[in-house]
Lab assay of single mutants.
Amino acid sequence: MSDLPVKVIHVESGKILTGTDAPKAGQLEAWLEMNPGYEVAPR
């Protein structure tokens, strides 16, 4: 599992989470399930 943060964006508000606020790569799927409305942000 990776500890690198994955940049995500809230589709409706446009809020972007990066760095320490962003979910870790190894926890991404579970985090997205618990935080509806967020998607992986385009690079």
Rank of each mutant, 00 (worst) to 15 (best):
37 G>F: 04
39 E>V: 11
39 E>L: 02
23 P>I: 00
7 K>M: 10
10 H>K: 06
28 L>G: 05
21 D>R: 08
11 V>G: 09
36 P>K: 04
36 P>N: 06
7 K>E: 15
41 A>T: 06
12 E>T: 10
1 M>L: 07
39 E>A: 12
20 T>V: 11
38 Y>W: 13
8 V>Q: 09
37 G>K: 04
8 V>R: 05
30 A>S: 11
39 E>Y: 05
26 G>L: 03
21 D>K: 08
26 G>T: 12
4 L>H: 11
12 E>R: 11
3 D>Q: 04
43 R>G: 13
3 D>H: 09
32 L>C: 03
39 E>W: 00
8 V>F: 08
3 D>A: 01
10 H>P: 00
5 P>F: 14
9 I>T: 12
2 S>W: 08
35 N>E: 01
29 E>Q: 07
11 V>P: 10
11 V>T: 12
38 Y>A: 03
26 G>E: 14
41 A>F: 12
26 G>C: 09
27 Q>M: 10
2 S>D: 13
11 V>M: 14
42 P>S: 12
21 D>W: 00
3 D>I: 01
23 P>M: 01
38 Y>C: 06
43 R>L: 12
40 V>Q: 08
32 L>M: 08
34 M>E: 12
26 G>S: 15
35 N>L: 01
11 V>E: 08
8 V>P: 08
35 N>G: 01
2 S>L: 10
2 S>V: 05
29 E>V: 04
34 M>V: 09
23 P>L: 00
12 E>M: 10
37 G>C: 01
34 M>C: 12
3 D>W: 01
34 M>D: 12
27 Q>D: 14
22 A>T: 14
36 P>S: 07
36 P>F: 00
43 R>I: 12
30 A>K: 15
27 Q>H: 08
40 V>D: 06
32 L>D: 01
9 I>P: 09
3 D>Y: 03
32 L>R: 04
37 G>M: 10
27 Q>P: 00
6 V>C: 03
31 W>S: 08
43 R>K: 15
9 I>Q: 07
30 A>I: 03
4 L>K: 12
1 M>V: 06
29 E>T: 07
30 A>M: 09
29 E>H: 06
31 W>V: 07
5 P>M: 11
42 P>R: 09
10 H>Q: 02
28 L>P: 06
2 S>Q: 06
36 P>C: 12
26 G>K: 12
31 W>P: 07
12 E>I: 10
32 L>Y: 02
33 E>T: 10
28 L>Y: 08
11 V>H: 04
31 W>E: 11
8 V>E: 10
3 D>R: 02
38 Y>S: 02
41 A>H: 07
30 A>P: 07
8 V>A: 07
1 M>R: 02
9 I>E: 08
